[in-house]
Each structure stands twice: as C-alpha cells, then as structure tokens.
Amino acid sequence: MNKVKKAVIPAAGLGTRFLPATKAVPKEMLPILDKPTIQYIVEEAIESGIEDILIITSRGKEAIENHFDKAYELEDTLLKKEKHDLLEKVQKTSDINIHYIRQKEPLGLGHAILYAKKFVGDEPFGVMLGDDIVVNRDGAPCLKQMIDIYEKDKASVIGVKQVPDEEVSRYGIVKKTGKETDKASQVDELVEKPPLEEAPSNLAIMGRYVISPRVFELLEKTKPGSGGEIQLTDALNDLAKKESVVAYEFEGIRYDAGDLLGYLKTTVEFALHREDISEDFKKYLENLLNS
C-alpha cells in the first residue's frame, strides 16, 4: 500500500465573507497573529510527513505563491541587520515543496479536487481545507492521526466532529454503520448540508480527509449537487459504496477561520496561547471587560 506523501489544499474561493479586505488580499493570506492562515495548514501537512503539497488557487491569488517563495532582498536585509530570528521565520516558508494550479471556474470543492488528478496519480492523498485550522497541542497533528488510521485500516478517512443541532445544515454530515475500526467508524452515508430534520447524525465533516485515488473517477461522474456545485461529499458518498470509508473523530481543537466571528475567536485564542504576548493580552482583555 502506498504511503500518504501528498496533500491538496483548495484555496480558490473568493472570500466574500471578508470583503472588502479580500478584494485585493486572498482570504488565505489574512493573518492569525503574525502568520497567514494558510501557513498553519501547510505547517500541519509538513509535520504530518507530507512531502509534496498542491495548492489550488484562482485568479488574484498570486500573494500565496509569493509568500511561499524565496525573498532574496528581504532575506539579505535581515541577514545584514543580524535579525536572525526573523530570518528563520521567513526562510521556514520558502523551503517547502509546493506546487500550484488554478481552478478556472468556481464550480465547487469536488471540481477543485479534480484539478489534483495528475499531481496525485495513483497514490492516496490528504485534503486540507484552508478555513479549518486544527491544533492538537498535546499530540500528533490532525492529518498525521488520519494518515495513521488510513495506513492501519486501509480505508479512506474523513475527519469529523460533533456539532450542535443549529449548525448541522452548515456542514457535510456523516451517517455511521455502527462498525468500529480502531478509533474510526465505517461510513454508511454522507449528505452535504442537510436540513436538521433530514440529517443522518450530527457528525460534521471538518475539512480534513485522507482519500483513495479512486475518488477521481467518481468525481468525473458527479453531477452538481448542493448549491449547484460539484461536491466532494457526493463523490465520497459514492466511494463509500465501493470501498471502505471511515469517519474519525480527531483529537485536537478545530478553529473555523472561514467567517468573521470564527476568525476573531481564532485570533483571540491563539493570542492567549502565545507565550510572548499571552500575559499582557490577558490583562488587556480583563481591563477591557471591566471598563
């Protein structure tokens, strides 16, 4: 069985929830503290053993490529000024093996993943959505947990978390068969953004996948579904009828940076966990709340 060494990060969305900021800046480049959102995703991939990353972009996303490229003048300036800590941070993003391809039309996540077919070939691969940052401070990164499940159970893996009833219609939802394999459960059905009364459970797909390459032949046959788009969830539903697919409730905290409130919550929580600023930030918040 092939090892999971490739990951795909879809980053072609327009970012309309963050307008007007995203008129000129890709939403994936909006910073959480001093680091662009997408960098957290890329670092998780590298820490999970991924060797090659494909970022699927669209028109106007050149800033993503620039961020992960060499910046010779900047690096030279930092070196001459002996700002070695900043130089290390800058160089950390330029030594990663990243590839890029553009999604020509916004036809859905499934359509975007199809652009990765040649990159992936006949290997299993990870998919990491750029709005979802997952932090597991006491253990393995989320994607690494899922790769371990894939290699043990020989099944595609979908990362899930339980959500409140009022949030069910925002997500792809998983129905389990009841058969348990290690920490994962066999998937019987997946439904994209169902109304609460039609949802098979409250287990929501949370932006992390390890998928068999067979999904590409199914994506090519998938018709537009929810929102008139080609949905990855629909193709995975078909995949579950042909081979083993499991749902895994991963360890760690998932942060939703895909809307304004989630982005603000993520920023605040990351600041509170950041050693160099956490104490001063806590005092600021306490004073603000007590004023």
Rank of each mutant, 00 (worst) to 15 (best):
Y248N: 05
L261T: 10
Y263N: 01
G258M: 05
D259P: 06
I277R: 03
E249Y: 03
Q231Y: 05
A257D: 12
Y255H: 09
L232A: 06
V245E: 01
H273C: 07
T266Y: 02
V245P: 06
D238F: 03
F250E: 02
E269P: 04
E229P: 02
S244L: 15
I253Q: 08
I230N: 03
K242V: 14
L236P: 08
A257N: 07
T267D: 10
G252T: 09
I253H: 07
T267S: 12
L239H: 06
R254T: 09
Q231H: 12
E275S: 13
I277Y: 03
D256F: 08
I253V: 14
D234C: 12
A247W: 01
E251C: 05
D234T: 15
A240D: 04
A247H: 04
V268S: 00
E275I: 12
I277T: 11
I230A: 05
D259F: 10
L264S: 13
F250T: 07
L260A: 11
Q231W: 07
I230K: 05
L260D: 13
H273L: 10
S244Y: 04
Y248C: 11
I253C: 01
K265D: 12
R254L: 12
T233F: 01
V246T: 05
I277E: 08
L272S: 04
D238G: 07
K241G: 14
A240L: 07
R254E: 10
F250A: 03
Y263H: 07
V268T: 13
K265W: 06
A240R: 01
N237D: 15
D276V: 14
Q231F: 05
A235S: 08
L272R: 00
L236K: 03
E243C: 11
G252V: 11
F270N: 00
V246Y: 01
D234G: 04
D238V: 11
T266C: 12
D238Q: 15
Y248F: 14
D238H: 02
A271N: 06
T266N: 02
R254N: 13
L260S: 12
A247S: 13
E275T: 13
F270A: 03
E249N: 13
V246W: 00
Y248T: 08
I277K: 02
I253G: 00
L232F: 06
E243Y: 07
L236I: 15
E275P: 15
V268R: 06
L272Y: 03
G252Y: 03
G262W: 00
L239I: 13
V268G: 00
K241T: 15
E249C: 09
E251W: 08
D276H: 09
L239S: 07
V245F: 02
S244I: 15
E249W: 03
E249T: 12
L260I: 15
E251N: 14
V245A: 07
Y263M: 11
L261R: 15
Y263A: 04
A257V: 11
L260F: 07
N237C: 11
D238Y: 04
E275Y: 09
E249Q: 14
K242H: 15
D276I: 10
D256H: 10
D276Q: 10
F250Y: 11
E269M: 08
E243M: 10
E251P: 09
Y248K: 00
T233R: 03
L260Y: 05
H273D: 14
K242D: 14
K242N: 13
L232E: 02
I277G: 02
D234P: 06
E243L: 10
T233I: 14
A271R: 05
E269F: 05
A235N: 08
T267H: 07
E229N: 14
Y263T: 02
L236E: 08
